[in-house]
Design a protein around this nucleic acid. Structure first.
Length: 275
DNA sequence: CGGGCGGCCTGGAGGC
DNA sequence: TGCCTCCAGGCCGCCC
C-alpha cells in the first residue's frame, strides 16, 4: 500500500510528534504481523524510552531511541500509525499501542497484517536482513542516470519491473512507477537494458519529481492510506495515468490510456507518447 | 542467478 | 439482503 511518499508523510509527522518524547509503555495486542512480533522483547525494551530521531529507509520507518536501540516499522499494504487520545476505544486491528509521556497513544493498525515491527541495537542495523539488500534512495544524489543505466545494463526485463525492484532503487511502488514512466515518456514494457542515457536522465528526473510532489501533497489515498492524524493524501488528484484506463491522454495527443497487467499488477500508460 | 510467481491477509466493490 | 469472485499501493521465498 504505502509507497515512499506515504511513508515519508508518516515519517515527517512522527518526527514532529515523537522526537524528544518518551514512549512510556508498549502493548502488543496481536503479534501476528509479518514475521511475528517478539512480544516479550518489545514490551520489555520499548518501555520508558526516549525517541531521538525518526528516519526512513525505503518504505521502512526507523525510530532511534536514546540508548542506541532502533525500532523498525513497515506499514505493509494496509498499515496505519494513528495518534489517539487514551479514552478513545481501541479499534479492531489496532495491533500495537505505544503510550507516550503526554498520555496520548500511537496505535499501529493493520487489517491485512502485512506490516512488521522489530527492534534491535543500532549496531545491527547495517546487516539487518530486511535492510541489507536495499538499493539506492531515489531522492538522494546517488540516484543518477549513469548509475541506473549501469545497473540495468544487459537486463531484458521491462523497465517498470526494474523500477519496482527494491534491490536496485527503493520506494517506487505500483502507482508511482506508472506515473514516472508517463512523465518521462517511456513505455513500461521497454527492456531496461535498452534505455539510453538520455532517457535515463528523463526517467530519473521524473521519479524525483513525482515522488517529491507526492510528498508535498501528503501522498496518495486510493483506499486505505491516511497520515497519523487520519487525513487522506491528495496526490490522487494529480495522477495522470494510474487508474485512468479508457480516458484520453492528459497530453492531448489523441492517445487513450491503457491498462495492462505486469507481474500481476495493474499498469497504466499512453501508447501514443510512451515509447 | 536474475527474475517471475505464489502466497500471505482482510475488506470493499461489483455481479447475480 | 446474501453470497461469490475479484481486486488492492508490498515483499519474502521458492523455483525455473
Amino acid at each position: 500500500m504505502p509507497e515512499l511518499p506515504e511513508v515519508e508523510t508518516v515519517r515527517i509527522a512522527l518526527a514532529r510528534e515523537l522526537q524528544g518524547r518518551r514512549i512510556v509503555k508498549t502493548r502488543v495486542h496481536d503479534s501476528r504481523l509479518r514475521f511475528g512480533v517478539d512480544v516479550p522483547r518489545i514490551e520489555t525494551l520499548l518501555n520508558d524510552r526516549e525517541v531521538v530521531q525518526v528516519r526512513r529507509r525505503a518504505k521502512y520507518l526507523l525510530v532511534n531511541l536514546a540508548g542506541d536501540d532502533v525500532v523498525l516499522l513497515h506499514l505493509g499494504m494496509s498499515g496505519r500509525l494513528l495518534f489517539r487520545e487514551p479514552q478513545v476505544a481501541r479499534e479492531i486491528h489496532d495491533h500495537v499501542v505505544f503510550t507516550l509521556d503526554d498520555l496520548r497513544e500511537l496505535r499501529f493498525n493493520d487489517p491485512r497484517r502485512f506490516g512488521m515491527l522489530d527492534m534491535f541495537p543500532r549496531s545491527e542495523e547495517s546487516h539487518h536482513p530486511r535492510l541489507v539488500h536495499l538499493g539506492v534512495e531515489p531522492l538522494t544524489s546517488g540516484f543518477t542516470a549513469e548509475s541506473m543505466r549501469r545497473l540495468a545494463r544487459r537486463s531484458r526485463r521491462p523497465i517498470k519491473n526494474f523500477l519496482m525492484d527494491a534491490s536496485k532503487v527503493v520506494g517506487i511502488g505500483n502507482i508511482y512507477a506508472s506515473e514516472a514512466l508517463f512523465m518521462a515518456g517511456v513505455h513500461p514494457m521497454r527492456a531496461a537494458g535498452r534505455i539510453g542515457l538520455e532517457r535515463w536522465v528523463r526517467l530519473v528526473s521524473s521519479v524525483k519529481t513525482v515522488l517529491g510532489d507526492a510528498i508535498t501533497r501528503g501522498g496518495t489515498t486510493l483506499r486505505d492510506f491516511v497520515d497519523t492524524g487520519g487525513e487522506r493524501g491528495v496526490y490522487g488528484e494529480r495522477l495522470q495515468v494510474y487508474g485512468n484506463a479508457g480516458l484520453s491522454c492528459p497530453r492531448d495527443d489523441g492517445g487513450t490510456i491503457r491498462r495492462v497487467v505486469m507481474l500481476g499488477r495493474s499498469t497504466y500508460y499512453c501508447p501514443r507518447c510512451q515509447r
